[in-house]
């Protein structure tokens, strides 16, 4: 009995002496410390504004004499949007559809194009550093500012002053008609040729991501395939493509997020906010825009998840 008591006392004594923190608790504390600035930022600049926008969208908000005048409306803003802007006027649905359409057409093209270019850029050829450098110029160019410059008569002067457009569409079109290709196909072809520059300019970061992915593939896989006698085509589909496929989601999300910036919906929201001063209404529109994008992302995520090959889960 006595000895047991003594033992208990001993244990108490040991507990009283402060143990140094274990590595695990230290790690936990450090994790919170490291995340603290980000959590504060999240609360201040993300969650608070987001909830405020949701609240505004349920109110009529008008700036008056420096202060905001609020009147609770419930779902009236949304009802108004669906009634006036979707059902009668169709402005909103048209603008939304326009931006979705551009996205849905551009997205696969950007995806395929950037993967193709990354594959081509990967090998060794003459002048690779130079070409690589040129391909990433769109990443640093400011598309907005170029848009401001290229307006109206200046653009016409621009293309005519320096040697004309280097691809003369009309001649090309005539040539294709003579060759005997269907007219609808020609329009499609010409439209895509017109858009090549847009696509090239939009896919700088995507090419960068894919290039990084391709170069991260261990070279012994390719060597093994070569020994087995696989052709380049087979190697691409059996090795490169599956190993790069996890990045499709990253690239798609990046492309969609990137397209927000010059989406017509964004300018619509900004216009109704800054010029018309319908804060409540513009908040409701932006919430709807956010929801549409989330639905789109969710659909794409569900489609992609099944098709993606996971090399290993690094968890």
């Amino acid at each position: 009995m006595k000895s047991k008591n003594q033992n208990l006392n001993k244990e108490k004594l040991v507990k009283k002496v402060r143990k140094p923190m274990t590595f695990k608790t230290k790690t936990k504390i450090l994790g919170i410390v490291f995340l603290l600035p980000w959590i504060i930022g999240l609360l201040m600049f993300f969650i608070y504004p987001f909830l405020t926008t949701v609240w505004y969208s349920l109110n009529e908000v008008r700036p008056r004499e420096g202060a905001l005048q609020m009147r609770f409306l419930g779902l009236d803003n949304y009802r108004y949007i669906f009634k006036e802007l979707v059902y009668y006027d169709k402005t909103f649905i048209r603008v939304l559809w326009e931006s979705l359409q551009v996205l849905l057409v551009n997205l696969p093209v950007i995806l395929i194009f950037s993967l193709l270019i990354a594959t081509l850029l990967n090998g060794k050829f003459k002048g690779r550093p130079l070409v690589q450098m040129m391909f990433f110029i769109p990443v640093i160019l400011n598309a907005n500012i170029i848009d401001i410059v290229m307006r109206g008569s200046f653009q016409m002067m621009f293309s005519s002053s320096t040697n004309g457009s280097f691809l003369d569409n009309i001649q090309f079109e005539n040539y294709l008609i003579e060759v005997g290709i269907g007219e609808s196909f020609i329009t499609f072809l010409l439209a895509s040729i017109d858009r090549i520059l847009t696509i090239v300019n939009l896919s700088g970061v995507q090419i960068l991501i894919f290039l990084a992915a391709i170069q991260a593939i261990p070279s012994h896989l390719y060597e093994a395939a070569e020994i087995e006698g696989a052709t380049k085509y087979e190697t691409f589909w059996k090795i490169t493509f599956p190993l790069v496929s996890p990045l499709f989601l990253t690239v798609i999300i990046y492309t969609i997020v990137d397209s927000f910036i010059d989406s017509p919906v964004m300018s619509f929201i900004d216009y109704s906010r800054d010029n018309l001063r319908f804060y409540g209404l513009s908040s409701a529109i932006s919430i709807l825009f956010f929801i549409t994008n989330m639905i789109l992302l969710l659909i794409i995520f569900l489609i992609i998840r099944k098709g993606v090959f996971m090399y290993d889960d690094k968890n």
Binding site: P49, T52, T53, I253, S283, N293
Partner: peptide, 15 residues
């Protein structure tokens, strides 16, 4: 990453 900046910009501005 996913939330468009125009959804947040008005409250941020007022803030």
């Amino acid at each position: 990453i996913v939330v468009p900046s125009s959804t947040l910009s008005l409250p941020q501005f007022i803030y």
